[in-house]
Amino acid sequence: MKIRIVAIIFAFAFLIQGTLLNNFAFFGITPNLTLCLLIAFTFFYEDESAIYLALFFGIISDICFSNIIGVSSLGYLLVGFLIVKFRPLLNKENILASVIFGGLGTLVFNIFYWLLTNVNTNQYDFTYILSLQPLYVISNLIVMVLIYFTLINRVVRHRSDRYYR
């Protein structure tokens, strides 16, 4: 998929994340659309442009919603790096792979986010954050499944594959 289209999707997701999605919160929590898109695009496609876009929108998101800038971007970078490292191990056509990456990616991002924000503020107890993780994971997985069914038919086949036409 062309990078400008991916950029538009990321921008749209960022805008509705802070506005429309809050009206449909699940026990006060909304899915992290930027994270879901990062995981999906990095897993399904062979290039890493989604990571750079997530990095950019992570900074914008921190400027708008947070007191500490750069935490989201570093979190997205970490998740993106891990996805790139481990994606050869799983079959992208299997929905379970998307679920596994979605769930683990959410946990990694949230724990990393808690670590970096708590250095300065000591705001949230770790056990409280852990108790919220099932909600975060479920809300993100719902989005991941929807993205899977949308994108799976557009997955790019590698050019060196001798059966590719």
């Binding site: 990095l55 400027i63 708008c64 007191n67 500490i68 971007s73 970078l77 970096l116 250095v119 300065n120």
Partner: peptide
């Protein structure tokens, strides 16, 4: 990002002109 993060810890909640423009 690490540099931005460290500056952000130092100026907790503060904002620059660029940040204001983005917001």
């Amino acid at each position: 990002l690490s540099i931005i993060l460290l500056l952000s810890y130092k100026n907790f909640g503060g904002s620059s002109a660029a940040g204001g423009f983005i917001r």
